[in-house]
């Protein structure tokens, strides 16, 4: 499994690496809130940010540390319901406090369900993480305490505010999500380029060699589960509080876990950017497909057909990616960019 290379040894005037993300952030903070419609925020950007962050979390575990997990939605649910309960039951706790505590709870659950990784590998580990998926969903449905005894198991998000500044409306929730996602993504980037990140890759690429050169394999695997679950848990909070506003445990089912796994496969394993590339595709793709289908087929293309065709096309896309571009959209993007750069230089 090769990893995304940043093999830009061409003689191009190399810009500092931080330029692109900084410009992107400036655009996201400065321009998007002014020009975006509420549809853009509600239907595209908010789910994109939440799923992108979840993808970053899963990528740390699966892309970098090589531990396959099918329990992502469970950690999202844990984060969402934990934040809800901290916010509800702890007087005077600021929202940020609830979110951090929710991440910590998710990471504790992640460590527990990561314990099998100490003995299991690959496919068998993936199946064992299904236990997290089913257990968490079952517990949240079974014990109504988690949803404050609401009859339907649905929780309503509290009002969002950071430091006393209320963030209402689509733009406010977008800025709330964008801030959290940016901070965590930056920290995740720092992590994967640190010694710990290198240990993750070492364990993924050759566990025996990693153990012999003295990397604490068991500790590092559990750390990967903890950090990954923390990030996915916070992504769950954004999903519940900023995007949907009302969620139930059923919203965090196995389909969601697979969706996040597809995000990192399509976007690019072991790449922070890849998670966002994949999330963009997963979010925009159904919208585009329904527009296209409606345009071409008219009324025949109802929601049932849409759902079906989505699954078929997505499945085909994943197969195509695994065969043609195993390193995902990120590799594709880098290749196109390099071509363009060369073409630009030769003119």
């Amino acid at each position: 499994m090769a990893v995304i290379t940043s093999d830009l040894t061409s003689a191009a005037p190399v810009l500092p690496k931080w330029i692109a993300p900084v410009l992107l952030l400036a655009f996201a903070y400065g321009v998007v809130p002014l020009i975006g419609s509420s549809y853009l925020f509600e239907a595209i950007l908010l789910p994109f940010l939440a799923l992108g962050l979840a993808g970053v979390g899963l990528n740390i575990l699966t892309g970098y540390a090589g531990q396959v997990s099918l329990g992502s939605a469970a950690f999202m649910a844990t984060g969402a319901f934990a934040a809800y309960n901290f916010n509800l039951r702890v007087e005077g706790l600021p929202l940020i406090g609830s979110i951090v505590l929710a991440g910590i709870v998710a990471s504790a659950i992640g460590i527990v369900f990561g314990l099998p990784s100490l003995r299991l590998k690959g496919f068998y580990l993936a199946v064992s993480t299904l236990a997290a998926q089913f257990f968490v969903q079952w517990a949240l449905t079974k014990f109504s305490w988690f949803s404050n005894d609401s009859a339907s198991g649905v929780i309503d998000a509290p009002r969002l505010s950071i430091g006393g500044v209320a963030l209402d409306g689509a733009v406010g929730r977008y800025l709330f999500a964008l801030t959290i996602v940016s901070i965590l993504t930056f920290l995740a980037h720092r992590l994967v380029t640190s010694q710990t990140g290198r240990n993750f890759i070492a364990i993924r690429d050759n566990e025996t060699a990693a153990r012999i050169i003295g990397i604490p394999v068991l500790k590092t695997k559990l750390l990967a589960f903890a950090i990954s679950s923390f990030i996915i848990g916070v992504a769950g909070v954004i999903w519940a509080f900023a995007y949907l506003r009302t969620v139930e445990p059923d919203g965090f089912d196995l389909d969601r876990s697979f969706q996040i796994l597809f995000i990192i496969i399509i976007g690019g394993l072991a790449s922070i950017r890849g998670a966002f590339f994949g999330a963009a595709l997963i979010v925009v793709f159904p919208l585009g497909l329904s527009r296209l289908g409606g345009f071409l087929l008219g009324d025949v293309f109802d929601s049932g057909v849409l759902d079906m065709s989505q699954r078929i096309v997505l499945g085909a896309l994943i197969i195509l990616f695994l065969i043609l571009e195993p390193d995902g959209l990120v590799a594709l993007w880098d290749r196109v960019r390099r071509r363009l750069l060369l073409a630009w230089q030769s003119t």
């Binding site: 010694q195 290198r198 990397i215």
Partner: peptide
């Protein structure tokens, strides 16, 4: 070798056992 790491990082990982700082 760890195929996904650069040559330098591969060699530096030989010192990972000494690292005392946490993540």
């Amino acid at each position: 070798l760890f195929k996904g790491l650069s040559v330098l990082d591969n060699v530096a990982s030989g010192l990972a056992y000494k690292v005392r700082s946490n993540f």
